[in-house]
């Protein structure tokens, strides 16, 4: 009798322990970055390492994507819950089909696209690209905007010889002088500078934003399924990410060290330099006026305008405000 009582008590205690664990178990999210680990993706790692997500009761699994379109697809397919991706990729996808993904926070309020050139390049302005050979990654989203940017600056896109190649070949091609310049993101300047140094050269850049390309870039995206099922979780995750982003801006080296804790082969100096290169896209006049993370309607409309023009879509094909959910932006 005593033994049975003991067994029943043990069973009850087990049940209690299980239910308590369940009650306090952290929510899990699968967070997908838009590219391989690099300095500019360090904020999420910093949030995890600093315990910002744990404080919000969230356990994060970080997955590496291979481009914003993949992040949008994986979120829509339910293979990831939240992540980072370019807002233009989301707008384009939503204009063309039903995609149950929303942008919940902006990260870059300026576009990161630029031309990387060797020091002393004859290309001094965008107009000088006529007759030159430029290298670009085969599947870069910048390729879509490029002809529109040229046309809006009265330059014939056909006058430029655009050579498509693997992203890993761009630096060597530039250093070897096989191309006059490359199309890249601002965050790649440090690693290009490293390779160019080996060739005894320095780099110069031409920012596309100086030639009229404006709009939101990298943003935090979430699957609509998660937003509907657990809006509180999205709010907590966005809050934790905002804290991490603010700390990374303040201390890029700390962010790079957090990244190295997850990706041991990472070079801390290079990662910190990459994050630093991305800070002007996060903190700038736009973020000063509206706050980091917000989506200002006029700039959002301009973002969509660029996408619509580059994809030859009607401007009324999408209301860009339908692609965003501003409820979760941290104060």
């Amino acid at each position: 009798m005593a033994l049975r009582l003991f067994k029943h008590s043990l069973f009850a205690l087990g049940l209690l322990a299980a239910s308590t664990t369940a009650a306090f178990a952290a929510d899990k999210i699968r967070w997908m970055n838009d590219w391989l680990p690099s300095g500019d993706k360090a904020a999420i790692y910093l949030g995890v390492e600093q315990g910002f997500f744990a404080e919000e009761g969230i356990e994060v699994e970080i997955i590496n994507g291979r481009g914003s379109s993949e992040v949008v697809t994986r979120l829509a397919a339910g293979a990831a819950d939240m992540g980072t991706g370019g807002l233009p990729a989301l707008l384009q996808a939503k204009a063309e089909q039903t995609i149950n993904v929303s942008a919940v926070m902006s990260i870059y309020s300026m576009q990161p696209d630029l031309l990387i050139l060797p020091e002393g390049s004859p290309i001094r302005s965008l107009a000088d690209v006529e007759g030159k050979t430029l290298g670009t990654a085969t599947f870069s989203a910048s390729n879509v905007i490029w002809p529109i940017l040229l046309r809006s600056n009265d330059i014939d896109p056909d006058s430029v010889n655009l050579v498509r190649m693997d992203p890993g070949a761009l630096g060597p091609m530039l250093a070897a002088g096989r191309v006059d310049g490359t199309i890249n993101w601002i965050t790649k300047i440090p690693s290009f500078a490293e390779v160019m140094q080996e060739a005894g050269k320095d780099v110069e850049v031409i920012l596309w934003s100086d030639y009229g390309l404006d709009g939101y870039g990298l943003s935090v995206l979430a699957s609509d399924r998660l937003i509907q099922r657990n809006p509180d979780l999205v709010e907590r995750a966005t809050r934790a990410y905002s804290r991490a982003l603010a700390l990374a801006v303040e201390n890029p080296r700390l962010a790079a060290e957090a990244l190295k804790a997850h990706v041991p082969e990472m070079d801390v100096e290079l990662a910190a330099a990459e994050f630093e290169a991305s800070i002007p896209l996060i903190v700038n006049d736009i973020s000063d006026a509206n706050g980091i993370g917000t989506f200002e309607p006029e700039l959002l409309a301009k973002t969509w305008e660029w996408v619509a023009r580059s994809q030859e879509l009607a401007l009324d094909a999408l209301d860009p405000t339908s692609a965003i959910d501003t409820r979760f932006i941290a104060d």
């Binding site: 391989l36 690099s38 590496n64 890993g168 060597p172 990706v263 082969e265």
Partner: peptide
């Protein structure tokens, strides 16, 4: 798609040139 493995490591290394 991977977070580990020699294929991932090659892609990672070339992304940093």
């Amino acid at each position: 798609a991977a977070e580990k493995g020699l294929g991932f490591f090659i892609a990672f290394s070339t992304s940093f040139l």
